[in-house]
């Protein structure tokens, strides 16, 4: 039986290994991001592949983002309605829903959905390309696989996510307006007029800026996990899985930083 000293040593070693792995992975991810910026600015540019990736990631995510946005708008309104009625503040519904969706719920939910769909997809795709030596084949043929596979995907997610967020926000507001129209006899025009009156550039700009960062994080993590996938089919599964988990966690970190920074600007 292990003594308490051995148990403490074992736990301490596990903890130290965990910290070391975290530091190493953070360093590698930072290096990967640095390489992305370097390669992005260096010709030749892969415009055709970038457009293809934008289509794959943007257009193919519309239904998922739309359905989720619609349900979020619907549920948020239905859940908030009784409380607002209790306080006699139901007329504030469009303002409350509009601001919360545009500033926070829309970008975060859309980013989380895209982390699930896009980051795992990129992780699995690049992972299987690594395992089946397709990335090596590209390199041997004189094409820079980092530029062709990684740069295009990260740029595509960075450019497409803000558009998906805007699309998701609009659909969510329609969902909310539908509930208000059915339950409170509020016309769509009145609902949207109230929402737009309540919103300011201070709500829209930080949300849009952070959506770009969300997109960057999703693409970066998905590509990093896939590009350095360990050998074997099990490695592909791990790459897809850890891409979603890491991207989702990083999204919350980025969200916290974005809210913190935008708060400083509000106070100025």
């Amino acid at each position: 039986m292990a003594t308490w000293q051995e148990m403490v040593n074992s736990r301490a070693n596990t903890l130290l290994k965990g910290i070391k792995d975290f530091v190493v992975e953070t360093g590698e991810l930072s290096y990967f991001a640095g390489r992305f910026f370097k390669e992005t600015l260096k010709p030749p540019f892969e415009f055709k592949e970038l457009l293809r990736q934008c289509y794959q990631m943007g257009n193919r995510s519309l239904v998922l983002v739309g359905v989720t946005g619609f349900i979020i708008g619907l549920v948020l309104t239905l859940q908030s309605r009784p409380t607002l009625i209790e306080f006699g503040a139901v007329s504030w519904m469009p303002n409350m829903v509009g601001i919360s969706i545009v500033r926070e719920i829309g970008p975060v939910i859309t980013a989380l959905i895209c982390a699930g769909r896009i980051a795992s997809g990129i992780g699995a795709e690049l992972g299987s390309m690594r395992v089946t030596e397709q990335i090596d084949a590209m390199e041997v043929s004189g094409t820079n696989p980092f530029k062709y596979l990684v740069v295009t995907r990260i740029l595509a997610t960075t450019l497409m996510l803000p558009l998906l967020v805007v699309f998701g926000d609009i659909i969510a507001l329609y969902g909310s307006a539908l509930v208000e129209n059915l339950k409170g006899d509020v016309s769509f025009q009145l609902y949207f007029n109230t929402v737009f009156d309540a919103l300011s550039y201070g709500d829209l700009i930080p949300a849009t800026i952070k959506s770009f960062f969300f997109g960057f994080v999703i693409g970066l993590v998905g590509c990093y996990k896939g590009y350095y996938c360990k050998k074997g089919t099990a490695g592909v599964g791990v790459a897809a899985n850890t891409a979603v988990v890491t991207a989702s966690l990083l999204l919350f970190v980025v969200d916290f930083i974005a809210v913190f920074v935008s708060d400083i600007f509000y106070e100025l």
Binding site: P44, Q134, A137, M138, S141, T143
Partner: peptide
């Protein structure tokens, strides 16, 4: 240098034509 990989390493997402055109892009 031509390199024939053990598992063929054809690009899954491209047609046979695109697979063959790919090395020509840079050369």
């Amino acid at each position: 240098i031509g390199f024939l990989f053990q598992g063929s390493a054809l690009y899954d997402s491209m047609t046979v034509r695109e697979n063959l055109e790919f090395p020509m892009r840079r050369h």
